[in-house]
Structures are given as C-alpha cells and as structure tokens.
Design a binder for these strands. Structure first.
Lengths: 320, 320
DNA sequence: AAGGCTTAAGTTACCCGTAACGTAAGATGG
DNA sequence: CCATCTTACGTTACGGGTAACTTAAGCCTT
C-alpha cells in the first residue's frame, strides 16, 4: 500500500521510504499494471476506440494522425478499428472494443447498425461521430455537411456553363459521406438544368487507379461529358492522368474537379479544382471534444469545421 | 459461475439454463469485461501495440493497414503509437502501452533507446521489429535491407552513366532506414567514381512539398546535377512537378528516381524509376509472425520480404 | 508526563471473471 | 434397491491496485 502511494506520488510517506521503494522499482523493473487499476473501477481507462473505414485513403490516415497525436498529449491511446466501410465490421469491432472498457469511442460516419446503436447507448461512455456532421448525434459530432459541399461544387460547375457532367466514385455498401456529396451535387446540377452521368466502380478503395479506370469507363459510355466531378482528389488525379494519356486537354477539352484537397495538390502546377477540408484539424477537434467530455467541461454537441471550395484551374474559368 | 460457462459456451449446463441466461444477457445488455479475464491471468490480452513513425507518409499508413487487418482476422486489436521518428517518443509510448499488458508489440525500426530495450526484454512478450531488417533482432524482425536497396539504386543509376547525382530527403534525428538507403546509395555511386550531393530539408514529413522545395534548393546549390534520387516516391513526385514547372525535361535534362513505389505511380504516364516494396504484405507478415509466436508455432526470427528495382522511364534508358 | 494532534504505515475489502474443487441430483448397471 | 458414474450447478479463492479505514509512531503543548 505504501509502495502504491509512492509510485503514484500522492503523498503520505517519508523520504526514506520513498527512496527505498524507488530502489526496488528499479531493481525489479516494476511497471504498474493499469489493467488492475481500471478493473477495480477506481479510474477510467485511457483507451479511446477509433474506427476508420480504411487507411488506403490518405484523408482518413490524416484524420487518424490528428486524433492520435492529440490523444497522446493527454496520455490517452487509440485502439484502432478498420471497418472497411461496412456496418457489420463496425458492429463487430464495437462489441470487442467495448469489452476492454474504453474511456470513449470515436467513430467515422453517422450510420451504425441498430445493435451497434444499442451497445453504444448502453455503454454510457462518450462517443464522437466524425466526418459526417450529424445534427442529432448519439453524443457528439464533428465534421462537415457533405451534402452542402457537393451542392456548392455543383453550383460552381454549372455557373461556369457546364451542363453535361460526369461523376466518378466507388460504390461502398453503406450510405456514406461520398453518397451525400453526390446527392447534393446532383441536386445543384439538376436544379440548374444540367445532367449528371454517374460512374461507380466496384473497387475497394477510392484511390488513383479506380479514378483512371473509372474515367475511361465514363467517357466510353457518355462521350459528350464536359466536366467530371470525382469522389476525391486521388481519383481526380487518376482522371487527370487518363486525360493526359489520351491527349485530352484540361480544362479545354474536359474539366476536372476533385474533393478533399490532398497534400499532392500543393505541388501540382495546375491547381486542382477541389474542396478543402482540414483533415488533421478534424481529427484533433474530435480528440479535444472527447477529452473535454471526459474532464466534465462543457462541450458543444455539434462542431462544423467547414469546407472551402477551391476554384483551381482544372475547370474553365468563366461561363461560356 | 454457470452464467460464465454459458456465455463462454464451454458446456456443462442444461439447455433450459442456457436459455434463461441468454435472456438475461439480452435484457441487461451484458458485455463481458475482458479486463477482468486478462487481469486474472487466465488468458492473454488481445492487444498488440503498434508503433509507427507517422501516417502522413502513405507507406506507413499501408503498413498499419496490413497489420491491423491481419490482426483483426485473429481477433486482436492494434493499440497505436505515433512516434514521430524519435526514440524518446517511442520510449514513452512503450512504457505506457506495456502497462496495459499487451500480448505483443510491433515496432517500426531497429533502433530503440537503452531504457526501451530494457523494458522490452523485461516484458517477456513477443516483439516484431519491422521495416528495417534486423539480423540480430530483439525477438523477431521483418523488412528489407535498406542499405542494399540504396546500393542497388546507386549501381543502377551509375550504370546508366550518371556521375553527378543529387539526393533529396528529410532529416530526422534518428538513424533510420532512409539514412541507410542513402549510405548504400553513396557507397555504390562513389564506388563507381560518381559523387552524391545531399540536400536534407528540415521538414517533419517526407512528402510532396518538401520534395518540390528540396529540389529547388539542391539545383540552386549544385547546377551540374544530372539525376536526383529521392527519399521516397512522394518526394520524387514533388521533384517531377518542380521540373515541370521550370521547364526541365525528364529524363532528357534531369533524371528522377524515387523509392517505395506508391499507388500514385500506377496512373502516371511516365513510369517513375523507383524501388518496389510491398508495404501491405510487410504489415501482414509482421502480424502473422506475431500470431505464430503467440500460438507457439515455430516462427523464423528474420523475414526478408525483399524489394524490386523498377527501372521506369524517368531516367535515361542506357549508358551514355 | 499526559493528552491531543499530525503524519506514516498497515489492514481489509472490493472490482469481475474463471480455475479448481465441492455437492446434489439424475442416470445407469448389477 | 443400492453402489457407481455422470451431469448440472454452486462455492471459494485469486489476480493487482487502491479507497476507506485502522493502528502506530512522532511531535508539540501545557
């Protein structure tokens, strides 16, 4: 017991005893067993479960980096779960991770299976839903409104005179953020009298190659496309490369717009039309909200971190 | 006790009792507390601590993805630690994560602080060191020989007639894998009568922008450079963009070689000269070795997953 | 020097799941 | 019908740390 007090430095022991205990700590290479502490219920654990769809998408890697770094400064650890964009994987992971008594959970997306919802409510721990802003979250939410960001892009492209617009993305089985961007996009384009031709590739990750290949498929199916909006910048980059390979000039022959503003855009000589979201900040904010809740500070339920449309120069620069 | 048997499904109860117990499980939303099980010492935990330098580098994100997916299939979870390429961060993280009684640890790199080494030896759990192949590992090691891969690249470039060669990378404080590649590279180039001019940017992540900017610095300092070898593909891509922006033709005016063979290379019309390493496979192999050790299968101490030089077309294609 | 006060150190019980063992009821066989 | 075996279920103890409490020791005051 006295040793426990010394190790925790909570006082109530003499200097002589402290030295003796610390000597033994060194000799034995003693490391406290945090399992026992948490198990006894005297303290909360310092685990935060973090679910991420996949790390092949640079965006989510950045979000995770933001989360883990910020959690680290508070002495918390991330327990990772890769859900591959499926609710079933997420549910399985939630069940497992809850059995480890985490202090809280950070989940990507706002759609969860009914059983997952039950478990989350039952667990009685803070939950932050990220990415998709959720106006009535389980607990807390931080992200952006994807529908609006798609809508803004649609309005922007139609304002430049584009009418026959393509969309290239991947098809995941869940109602996800990319789907909402597409909905917003279609609404804006169709509202302005334009039309959207969709091309969804069956590919597991939304990255360069499906962007290349999806562009080829789209242009084969619909030759009069004037402009293509992509699920994200990586796919848009694949599209740019397809155009370069086929001798299509951007933006003269075809316009290209991405989403997410990846780091790679920082070095491209032709600025990619895109939509900027601060992924790192999103992760950090999620971690901060979690920490705020765990220290009983007042925390807003919903934080919109916003987005910024980047006009770029891969679309024509004024209405025809 | 009977309830415990039912939940674990280990037998020794009647069907009637099973139904009654499962009903209560549903009613109460009971989830077993794995902390208690592990704490009691009856089972090992299913945590694996995974330390990664940073996730801004796509390569490490892929390695982590490989690890976590494979661990997941065995019912294990990754506890993440981002060490920012410093031994001190790694040491702090090891101390914390060990207090959670993980079943094992997967660490990036072969260099650890003396205290970290002590703790690792004391912990008596499996440790896999990845990335850098370590012929005398703490326990197990999987990766490639970075010195050799740098050497091969140096030999390849000099075989094409390049003599004044630049290197662009970032400077991290640790003796890391990139440093070893550079050593191997210099040895090969100097052995063939060539010279290497180094340009190390003080930038925290080895990605596109430092590649762009480092190229500018290098070419300002040494105008007669014929070819540049980069720390990785992302930096090489930044270099390619710099050349494009300045009207330098690749490979006619200058040769460009990267390392790592990132997915982005799959869509570029000019194949980037690089060195292929299967990052996902590396992660999976690390997880497999860990699982093998935990199930008392015989596991090789050292696994070389190899690399493959990719000639590409961003360097000239035969000796002058 | 006795009484009251402060500080240091020790004791007990608890957290939850399960191994090991104990007991009671039912099934089987001679 | 009793001895024996099998199955179902119950009891006890343990793991490591710490809250809450108790005891012991040191210190000062009058």
């Amino acid at each position: 017991m006295t040793a426990s007090r010394v190790v925790r430095g909570e006082g109530g022991y003499s200097e002589k005893t402290r030295v003796k205990v610390m000597e033994q700590v060194d000799v034995l290479g003693y490391l406290p067993n945090r399992l026992a502490t948490v198990f006894a219920g005297d303290q909360n654990s310092t685990f935060i479960g973090v679910s991420i769809p996949d790390l092949g998408n640079e965006v989510f890697a950045q979000v995770l980096e933001g989360i883990d770094r910020k959690l680290g400064t508070f002495g918390y650890q991330s327990v990772l779960g890769l859900t591959q964009h499926t609710q079933q994987e997420e549910e399985n992971w939630i069940r497992t991770v809850l059995s480890w008594q985490p202090a809280g959970l950070i989940l990507t997306g706002r759609y969860h299976s009914p059983r997952a919802m039950d478990m989350l409510r039952n667990a009685g721990i803070p939950v932050v839903e990220i990415w998709d802003l959720n106006s009535s979250p389980l607990d807390m939410s931080v992200g952006i409104n994807h529908f609006d960001s798609g809508f803004d892009m649609g309005r922007y492209l139609t304002s430049l005179g584009y009418q026959n617009i393509g969309y290239v993305g991947t098809s995941h089985d869940t109602a996800n953020a990319a789907t909402e961007r597409l909905s917003g996009f279609c609404k804006a384009v169709e509202g302005a009298g334009g039309a959207v031709v969709k091309q969804l590739c069956l590919h597991d990750t939304a990255t360069y190659y499906p962007g290349f290949y999806g562009t080829e498929q789209l242009l084969a199916a619909a030759r009069d496309i004037e402009c293509i909006f992509y699920q994200n910048d990586a796919m848009a980059f694949g599209g740019l490369q397809y155009c370069a390979a086929k001798g299509l000039s951007v933006p003269d022959d075809i316009g290209i717009a991405g989403w997410g503003d990846l780091p790679i855009a920082s070095v491209m000589n032709r600025r990619l039309t895109s939509c900027h979201v601060s992924h790192l900040k999103l992760g950090q904010k999620a971690a901060e909200m979690m920490m705020g809740r765990l220290t009983d500070e007042p925390v807003p339920t919903c934080t919109d971190i916003g987005f910024r449309l980047i006009p770029g120069s891969t679309v024509r620069n004024s209405g025809v």
